[in-house]
């Protein structure tokens, strides 16, 4: 028996919008720790890891570990039917091949339930090692989204370069080139507008902008984004979900042939 009640149901709506374009089908895992997902995109270039901790739910009952295969497209369709202020409850019975999403309006005058078919998904779970990153950039998520969108109109790839001067995003395309430098800016009165750069080593890596623009769909989940870079590792683009967990995207770099 599974029953998860989330008063701020809009979080789940935003999570689905943040991952559905990257991954079509995925297994959601439910355990005492929380509701989680790990999945690669179909090209195996990017990986998304989601965690919604059990403490973040108003009610969290998960009698045994469950892995439920879902079409994220279909799940997003169902969650779009929930109002932004609705309380969302996820329910599943042991051995059932369906999951139910229940939406309650804040005043309890409208209650809807949507039952969705589960699916069998053969997916590999990867072990992601703890790593020390050479550079960690924290910046406003809206700023990062804007940069990726703007650069995507000019080129296909972004070179992210962190030095003690700041973080530079560069692209090159048929029409020309673009460079955007963000310097450290520790706005004490407005922490959500801060750009903070922690650098052990200068690092320069190249990534496909298509994926970065897909990650930026998580912008409504967090005011800040954390970009962790090391020359020998995929970049991690993390959006923290307040008091609940995170959506992390891992993206393998492009290298010179």
């Amino acid at each position: 028996m599974l029953e998860l009640r989330l008063v701020q149901g809009s979080i789940l709506k935003k999570v689905l919008e943040a991952i559905k374009d990257l991954v079509n089908d995925a297994n959601f895992d439910c355990s005492a720790t929380g509701f989680s997902l790990q999945a690669m995109d179909s090209s195996h270039v990017a990986l998304v890891a989601l965690l919604l901790r059990s403490e973040g739910f108003e009610h969290y009952r998960c009698d045994r570990n469950l892995s439920m295969g879902m079409s994220l497209t279909n799940m997003a369709k169902m969650l779009k039917c929930a109002g932004n202020d609705d309380i969302v409850t996820i329910k599943a019975d042991d051995g059932s091949d369906t999951i139910t999403f229940m939406f309650e309006s804040p005043t309890q005058d409208k209650i809807a339930d949507f039952e969705m078919k589960l699916m069998d998904i053969d997916s590999e779970h990867l072990g992601i090692p703890e790593a020390e990153y050479e550079a960690i950039v924290r910046m406003p998520s809206s700023e990062f989204a804007r940069i990726c969108k703007d650069l995507g109109t000019i080129g296909d790839t972004v070179v992210i370069s962190v030095t003690k001067e700041g973080v530079k995003f560069s692209t090159r395309g048929d029409i020309g080139t673009a460079n955007i430098v963000c310097r450290q800016n520790t706005s004490i009165d407005k922490p959500e507008e801060a750009t903070i750069i922690e650098m052990q080593e200068p690092v320069t890596l190249t990534f496909a902008l298509r994926y970065m623009n897909s990650f930026a769909k998580a912008t409504p989940l967090a005011t800040q984004v954390t970009i962790s870079l090391s020359s020998e590792l995929p970049v991690v683009v993390e959006y923290k979900i307040a008091e609940m967990g995170y959506v992390r995207y891992y993206l393998a770099p492009k290298i010179e042939e």
Binding site: A46, L233, P234, K254, I255, E256
Partner: peptide
């Protein structure tokens, strides 16, 4: 020309 690396080159299956 750039070569796109894959996630599986960095992370192993559990």
């Amino acid at each position: 020309p750039c070569l796109q690396r894959k996630i599986l080159e960095y992370f192993d299956g559990d």
